[in-house]
Simulated assay, not measured.
Amino acid sequence: MSIRPAARTDVPVILELIHDLAIYEKEPNAVKTTEAMLEAALFGDSAKVFAHIAENQHGVQGFALWFLNYSTWEGVHGIYLEDLYVRPEARGGGHGKALLKNLASIAIEQGYARVEWSVLKWNTPSIDFYRSLGAAPMAEWDTFRLTGKALENFGAQA
């Protein structure tokens, strides 16, 4: 198994894995991203999104897609892990752990304060896995999101 930065040629398989993740998260019709959008986000002139690939002798088994955030309290960047996904048949093979170790090493090398992500409350296999790594939930925090019509309506008031 190896972990490497994503290449342009990985865009189709990354999008395939994003669709698989959406199915796993019970949102099979939620993905609007296209290959062109993903390629621009990852490799365009103003790319601000990064991805790493986990692969073995059978090909790509998973990916991590992330971007930088910033902590005003720490005064430095951190990594926000948007998506982590490993194919079901490859789970338990260390791919997810290797992807997270890779992100942790990037954070350390760059002097970033943290690696953080969200997980669905019902996803106990992932929650148990994250806890086994030493990750802890932010018990006092909830995620809020403005999207769709609510975003349009609120933004129109500016």
Score class of each variant (00 low, 15 high):
Asp10Gln: 01
Asp10Glu: 05
Ile14Tyr: 01
His19Pro: 04
Leu21Asn: 07
Leu21Pro: 01
Ile23Tyr: 02
Glu25Asp: 11
Glu27Thr: 15
Val31Met: 01
Lys32His: 14
Thr34Arg: 03
Thr34Ile: 03
Glu35Gln: 09
Glu35Lys: 09
Glu35Ala: 07
Ala36Tyr: 10
Ala36Leu: 05
Leu38Met: 05
Ala40Cys: 11
Ala41Met: 12
Phe43Gln: 08
Gly44Ala: 04
Asp45His: 07
Ala47Val: 01
Val49Ile: 10
Glu55Leu: 04
Asn56Gly: 12
Asn56Leu: 05
Asn56Arg: 00
Gln57Thr: 14
His58Gln: 15
Gly59Val: 09
Gly59Ala: 12
Val60Phe: 00
Phe67Asp: 09
Leu68Thr: 10
Asn69His: 11
Tyr70Lys: 05
Tyr70Leu: 08
Trp73Glu: 12
Gly75Trp: 05
Gly78Pro: 12
Gly78Glu: 09
Leu81Met: 09
Val86Phe: 07
Arg87Val: 11
Glu89Cys: 08
Glu89His: 09
Gly93Glu: 07
His95Val: 06
Leu100Gly: 00
Lys101Leu: 14
Asn102Val: 10
Leu103Gln: 08
Ser105Pro: 11
Ser105Phe: 12
Glu109Pro: 04
Glu109Cys: 12
Ala113Lys: 14
Arg114Cys: 13
Ser118Ala: 15
Ser118Asn: 14
Lys121Asn: 15
Asn123Gln: 03
Thr124Met: 12
Ser126Ile: 03
Phe129Glu: 01
Phe129Asp: 10
Leu133Gly: 08
Gly134Phe: 01
Ala135Lys: 00
Ala139His: 15
Ala139Ile: 13
Glu140Ser: 06
Asp142Glu: 14
Phe144Gln: 08
Lys149Asn: 15
Leu151Phe: 10
Leu151Thr: 09
Leu151Ile: 11
Glu152Gln: 11
Asn153Arg: 09
Phe154Ile: 12
Gly155Ile: 04
Gln157Leu: 15
